[in-house]
Amino acid sequence: MTALVPSPLSRPLALPCGVVLKNRIAKSAMSDSLGDGCGHPTEAQIRLYERWAEGGAALSIIGEVQGTPNFAEKPGNLVLHPAAQMSGFEKLATAGASNNANLWLQLGHAGAMADAPISTPKGPSALDIPGLACAELTMPEIQNLPAEFAQTAALAQGLGFGGVEIHAAHGFLLNQFLSPLFNKRNDAYGGSLTNRMRVLIDVITAVRAAVGPSFPIGLKLNATDQLVGGFEQDEALQVITALDGIDLIDISGGTYFPGAPSSSDRVGSGPYFLDFAARARGKTDIPLMVTGGFKTFDQAARAVDDGAADMIGLARALVIDPDVPNKWVSGDETNPDFPRFSAPPEGGVTAWYTMQITHIANGAPPLVASDLEHAMSDYQARDHKRCTLWNNHFGLSK
C-alpha cells in the first residue's frame, strides 16, 4: 500500500502576531444559527465546533457574533456583551480549541441588513427600496462603533477564544460603509473611499488597542460586491493597502442584498477570488485567506502551492464532510460529494446547509437533496420561534 504524501495544505502558517496555525485549512464563517435565541451558545453549537476541530481544521470562525442585540443578522446569532452569560462562551472556546485548533469569533453588525423582526435596521444612509428599508445611523452611533467592536474583542480574548475576525463583507455594516450603493453620506464617513473606509480603519485600530499585539485579528473583506455601482476590486485593493494591525485577510465577495446573486450559490467549477488574491499579493505582506468555490483537493492544494493563497477557507465542504481537513492535509484527495438541487427557491440552499449543520451538531444522519423542502420549513419555523425568544429576552417590542 502506497503511503500518502503530505500535501501543501499541511504546512503551518505563522501569523504576524506570532500565532502559528497548524495547517492551511480554515472553516470559514457561516451563520450556523445555533444560538439559543437569547444570544447564548447551545450545547449543540459547542459540539459542532468541537467536531470541526476534530476534523482537522486549523482555524474555525463563528459567523456573525454580535456586540449588541440591536442589529443582528438572525435570531440564532450569538451576542457577546458584558451582560451575557459567560459560562457557555467559555465552554465553546474550550471545545473549539481541541486538537490544537484555533476558534475565532467573527465580529458582526448587520446594519441595514439587520433582521427586521428583531431589530430596527440602520445603515450608513436611509434606504427605502424593494426588499430593503432602513434608517440612517447618527453621527454618535457611528463614532461609538469602534468601541463596541473593541469591547466584544476584549471579552472574546478574556474568555479564551483564539482570535477575532472583523466582518466587512457580504453586505453587512462595515461593507455597507465601503459601498457607494449603501453609503450616500456627505460627511466624514461618505463620498471618497478614504471617508468610506474611515469607520473600518477606526474599528481595526480600536480592536488592536483593546487586545494587544499578540492576539490574532482577521478581516473579512469583499473583493467585489458583484453589484453594478457597488464596491469593486480596485477599491478593495486600496483598502488592503491601508490596513495595519491585521493578521489575516479573508477574501470573499458578493452580498445578501435582496435579490442579489449569492457567490456561494453561483454555478462554477473553481474558486471565485484567486485572481483578486493575486492582485492583492502585490499590495500587502499580510497572509491571505481565500474563501469561496473550493470544491476539490486539487484546487486547494494548487492555490497554496502556487502561492495564490496562504489559507483556504472552506464552508459548505465542511458541512458535507467535517473530516475534509484531516484527509486533505494527509494527502488523501477524496473530495466532498456535494448535493445537486433542481431549481431551488431563493434561500432554499442556504436553509438546507444550515439545517445540515444542525444535523452534524446533533450527530444525526445527514440530509439528502430531496430534503430541501422539509429543511426550509424547519429553518423558517426555528427562526420564527427564536424571534419571540429574542424580543422577550432583550426587551425589544416587535
Rank of each mutant, 00 (worst) to 15 (best):
L274E: 12
V203H: 07
F273N: 01
N326Q: 13
G39C: 11
G307V: 03
Q151A: 13
R382S: 09
S10D: 05
G123F: 10
L78Y: 10
M355T: 02
A361K: 03
T334P: 10
C38H: 12
T255A: 08
R11H: 14
M113W: 00
V239N: 11
L174A: 11
L107G: 04
P345S: 09
N175H: 15
T94D: 09
G131V: 04
R279N: 06
I166T: 04
G96R: 13
A317I: 00
A308F: 03
E235A: 14
A278V: 06
S125H: 08
A126I: 05
A188Y: 02
Q151V: 01
T68I: 12
Q106T: 07
Q157R: 15
E64M: 11
H384F: 04
V199Y: 11
V211W: 01
A301H: 10
G245V: 03
F394V: 05
G191Q: 08
S370C: 09
A168R: 05
T224F: 06
G171P: 07
D202H: 11
F161M: 07
Q143A: 13
I320G: 02
G76A: 08
S10K: 03
F161E: 05
V267K: 15
G259V: 08
Q299C: 04
I25E: 02
I320V: 15
E136N: 03
D128V: 05
E73G: 13
V20I: 06
L318T: 08
G292R: 03
G191C: 06
S370V: 09
I217N: 02
A95I: 07
W104M: 11
G218K: 00
D298P: 01
N183A: 04
G292Y: 02
A280Q: 05
P8I: 07
T120A: 12
S7P: 14
T194L: 11
L396R: 09
A369T: 03
G307M: 05
P146D: 03
S87V: 09
I217A: 03
P366V: 02
D275E: 15
